[in-house]
Design a protein around this nucleic acid. Sequence first.
DNA 1: AAAACGTTTCAATTTTAATTGAAATATTTA
DNA 2: TAAATATTTCAATTAAAATTGAAACGTTTT
Lengths: 135, 135
Amino acid sequence: MNTRNKNKTKQSCDCTISRTDIPPAIQEDLDAVGGIPGLCDQLPPESSIVTTSTTYHALSDPLRMKVLYLLRVQPLCVCVIKACIGIADSKLSYHLTILKKAGLIEGEQKGNWIVYQITEKGLLFAQENPPMPSL
Amino acid sequence: MNTRNKNKTKQSCDCTISRTDIPPAIQEDLDAVGGIPGLCDQLPPESSIVTTSTTYHALSDPLRMKVLYLLRVQPLCVCVIKACIGIADSKLSYHLTILKKAGLIEGEQKGNWIVYQITEKGLLFAQENPPMPSL
DNA sequence: AAAACGTTTCAATTTTAATTGAAATATTTA
DNA sequence: TAAATATTTCAATTAAAATTGAAACGTTTT
């Protein structure tokens, strides 16, 4: 059994590269860190990487960022968000769902309306000079 | 001439909504902030929103996050990154370009290789518990 | 219970992003 | 200068995300 990899929580890589193929300065640093396998061991677990990039994806659309900035001001029903941004209902709903799934906003039914508010996580990304979050 | 909108740096919205159409609690907050136009004035300028979401887009792919995490450890030539991640040259190059354009990494030719390193901006996003950046 | 309202869902389409493999470029070595 | 190596660029394809308009859903009002 491969003892080096037992109980690993980080992902490792099985790839190798011949020692003469890379610049000496980089090779030195690489040796210090345990070569390519040691370097790969420094990657966060795949699941965490996926979570992180999913959050960033939700933030990667200007429209969605606008919604987040609006909800930073106060909770809002969909119709007000729509009035500010000026897009079709179904389009807005689509983007709200993406923000919601990423945990950046949450919605609550209040009578005839659904009122959305920003979450704590969302707030971290809705700063104009954002002071960044743990995802 | 419209005096309200002269010299504006934030974007504003010209949409209105009839006063009775939204939940009272929200209406109150909305009044306090200057109604829908006042709310819209709180949006950052469009250009800043686009810059922000472009950065997030660069971060929205697991592959690109991996590259960023690797470069957090030390500067690397493309071949080592490739050895860790295990994808085709041209694919890696495509993703490196996106990270570079977003200002998260930079590359320098060193002899036969191109050595990439993470930028200060990139470093802010490559924390496992990221302490967030101003974009 | 029917009509009206705010919002979401769905299927179809359009747009954008990612992947692929071959060819091109630039640097070094022979 | 030719061959070899590392990386990028390009055109074509595939895959994913966004948009659209119509229909459905749940709540409130009449």
